[in-house]
Amino acid sequence: MEGYAEVMVERSFVVPSVDIGPYVRGGDDVARTRVAAQIDEACRTVGFFQIRGHGVPEHVTAGLASAIDGFFGLPLEVKNGYRCPPAINRGYTPPKAESLSLSLGVESAARMNDYFEAFNVGVPARTYPHLTLPETDYADNVWPSELDAFASQVGAYFAEAQRVARTLTRVFADALGLPAGFFDAFTDHSLDVLRMNNYALPPDTYTGHGDLIGMGEHTDYGIVTVLWADRIAGLQVLDTRGVWHDVCPDESALLVNLGDLTARWTNERWLSTLHRVKPPIVDGTIRRRRSAAYFHDGNIDAVIATLPTCLAEGEPARYAPITVAEHVRAKLAGSRAGTPNASAEREAARLAAADRAPLS
């Protein structure tokens, strides 16, 4: 099929690759209908796909990579100066300060043991001066003063990723047979965050023994995630049979996965896919890996309820209505504050049924 390719990840598992150019560059109805059908297929069968034709300039992604390298190359004591309290989803997170599995209510062998480090930026409340938004959710960003270009490089990529995420919700509306612009009312002051991740450990800290977790099993929280990542092994996706598979993006492609809120909207017609990051270990040494996840989570006050068009006659909704605030805060309380999330039963059940191959 024109514009659609399948990338072989393992013999029985493929991550679809879709050219969304007809929505980015402008295309006719036939081309957009084809893209929407491909996205629907990917969301129903995998929940992870990669996109080409997204229009993000190479110099912008190169700037993002440079910013990531610059910040994570700073001494730990400098990076720690940009830490924020767990309730504020901004700034620096050092290694072993989070446990993503707790966002599902799943206790791992050791709490707060994911070895990645991260730096978060997001949309501040002052972006929407006509609204009264909670400062904890729409907090101001902290910018490292040691790096002159960091804010501009990250800001340039943030704007592009935001454009891509909003383009994808246009495609989603078409794919689900909803009116054009359906998701706009849920995202006009969206709680969006860019999380830049660094998977590395200082020399001589890995002995090859013990439970080493890059990023624990989890689903993303919001509507859709746009992921830039190095083409280095580590990311794994759980398929519908409960088997984990390695995923690596094509050159210049962006990975996309759905969040819990979309699974709720569609009554799991579309999947919020469980994923994790294994340590990329080569010859006994952890190979450095970088990624940047743009989380498009929706308005904090939006109520997410199952779409009637995603319910067959007599089919019950699998989820009760919930606000974005209620859902995201419960997830963050798990991953960042160590409070297991008690309202992720369906996701936790999928994880319990999975092949529990160890992370190391």
Rank of each mutant, 00 (worst) to 15 (best):
L76S: 06
N80A: 06
I286G: 03
V226H: 07
C84P: 04
L194T: 01
G155F: 02
E117P: 04
G210T: 12
V123N: 13
G334T: 06
T127K: 12
A325G: 12
K331N: 08
R231Y: 00
T262C: 14
N267G: 09
V237E: 05
D19S: 11
V324H: 11
D211G: 05
Y82N: 02
V24E: 09
G73T: 08
V256T: 05
T309C: 13
T205W: 08
K278T: 01
Y199R: 00
G26V: 09
P358M: 03
V303H: 08
G284P: 10
E2A: 08
A139N: 09
N89Q: 05
A330K: 10
F72P: 06
L255S: 03
V243T: 15
R90D: 02
L261A: 14
A125W: 03
A229Y: 03
G259W: 13
P16Y: 03
R170E: 15
R83A: 10
G298S: 15
V224A: 04
A253D: 11
A180C: 06
A357S: 03
R241F: 07
T339N: 14
A320Q: 13
A349S: 11
P179A: 00
E135Y: 07
R289H: 15
M196K: 00
D246T: 09
P134Y: 09
D114C: 12
D69H: 14
D137N: 04
L332P: 03
D188N: 15
L104I: 02
L235D: 10
I213F: 03
R25A: 12
D28M: 03
A118G: 05
R111Q: 13
L194R: 00
F49S: 02
G53S: 11
V193I: 10
F49V: 04
H218K: 13
I223C: 09
I300P: 14
P85K: 01
T45D: 01
R166N: 15
Q50L: 09
A109K: 13
D114L: 11
N299T: 14
C248H: 01
D204C: 09
L212P: 07
F116M: 09
L176T: 02
V247W: 05
N80L: 07
A337W: 11
F49C: 06
W265C: 04
L238A: 02
M196P: 01
R318K: 14
P321F: 00
V256N: 05
H189F: 14
G214Q: 10
I88P: 00
E107T: 13
A352S: 15
E347N: 08
G234T: 07
T127G: 07
I232N: 12
N197P: 02
T262H: 11
A139I: 02
T61V: 12
T45E: 04
H59D: 15
N197Q: 00
V56W: 05
T132M: 06
V224N: 05
R288E: 15
D192N: 06
V9G: 05
A233P: 10
E313D: 11
V9Q: 13
D250T: 07
P340S: 05
N120V: 02
A200V: 00
